[in-house]
Simulated scan of single mutants.
Amino acid sequence: MTQTFRTAIVTGGSKGIGAAIALRLARDGHAVVVNYARDETSADEVVASIERAGGKACAVKGDVADPHCLTYLFDAGEASFGPVHVLVNNAGIMDNGPVGSVSDADFEAQCAVNIGGVFRGLRAASARLADKGAIVSLSSSVVGLYQPGYGVYAATKAAVEALTHVLAKELGSRGITVNCVAPGPVETGLFMAGKPEAVVERIRQMNPFNRLGTPEDIAAAVAFLTGPDGRWINGQILRANGGVV
């Protein structure tokens, strides 16, 4: 564990990819605000893991679909650890189905979290992130693949990528980098739930490495973009998917 020198907010940081990102950023020397919407126990476990390793973290409840959530997360980060240098917009939801069968409620829920939550995070960071900071939002490799059943989800993530391209130009004068990481299939509890092994194996075989990604694979990409070696990378979409095209 290196000495803490920056503060990071990770939305949806209690489990899966978000938890791996929080743990990795803490290992790299960040004090981490671990945001969660419902699972307080998992968020507390992430914080405890960081603290056992000598790092600093706090768990903060909030649903990114709430217009006030990101303001509250920045307030909590600044009060606990000082100026916020890194924002990772990880929180997201997915409800698959053919476009013709998606209800208004499902459409609006995905837009509220996947677009609205990221937009408000980017807006808050525009005003409050420290100069020479870094923003990483999670997109998805379904943008570009355009698979049946992923229409609304892919549309929300395409919007995240568009916001990223624009904000990178708007914040460049302050030395803030703005990028996306777009994972392919990742072996998390949420991804594996309800999938027969034959389906999982078929998805593995879509990848040149014949495996699923891991949360740590994605966390490593985020760590690169938020770390000193990523300072010349800006306005980019890093498709962290092992070569699925």
Rank of each mutant, 00 (worst) to 15 (best):
T2S: 14
F5E: 15
F5P: 02
R6M: 11
T7C: 13
I9R: 00
I9K: 00
G12A: 07
G13H: 03
G18P: 04
G18A: 07
A20C: 08
A26F: 09
D28Y: 05
G29Y: 09
G29P: 04
H30Y: 14
A31T: 03
N35K: 01
R38G: 03
E40L: 15
E40K: 09
T41F: 11
S42K: 02
E45W: 10
I50M: 09
R52P: 03
G54K: 06
G55I: 12
K56I: 13
A59Q: 08
V60Y: 02
G62W: 04
G62C: 12
V64A: 10
V64F: 14
P67Q: 12
H68V: 15
D75M: 14
D75L: 13
D75K: 05
P83D: 15
H85S: 15
V86M: 10
V86W: 13
L87A: 06
V88S: 02
V88Q: 03
N90F: 08
I93D: 00
M94Q: 05
D95T: 12
G97H: 01
P98Y: 06
V99P: 00
V99W: 04
S103M: 11
D104G: 06
D106V: 13
E108M: 12
Q110K: 05
C111W: 12
N114S: 08
G116Q: 05
G117Q: 04
V118P: 03
F119C: 01
R120I: 07
L122E: 03
R123Q: 11
R123M: 06
R123W: 08
A127H: 00
R128Y: 14
A130P: 00
D131G: 00
G133S: 06
V136S: 01
V136K: 01
V136F: 10
S139R: 00
S139E: 11
S140W: 09
S140Y: 06
Q147S: 08
Q147C: 02
Y153N: 04
T156S: 13
A159Q: 05
V160L: 04
V160W: 06
A162R: 03
A162Q: 14
A168L: 10
S173K: 02
C180N: 11
V181N: 01
A182S: 14
P185D: 05
V186S: 01
G189C: 04
F191Q: 00
F191A: 04
G194N: 02
K195W: 09
E197M: 05
E197W: 04
V200L: 11
E201K: 02
R202Q: 14
R204G: 10
Q205H: 09
N207L: 09
N207M: 08
F209H: 10
N210R: 05
N210C: 10
N210E: 13
L212P: 03
E216K: 00
D217Q: 01
A221L: 05
A223V: 05
T226I: 06
T226Y: 09
T226E: 09
G227L: 07
D229L: 10
D229F: 12
D229N: 13
R231S: 14
R231D: 15
Q236H: 12
Q236L: 09
I237Y: 04
A240S: 11
N241E: 15
N241W: 01
G242R: 02
V244Y: 01
V245H: 06
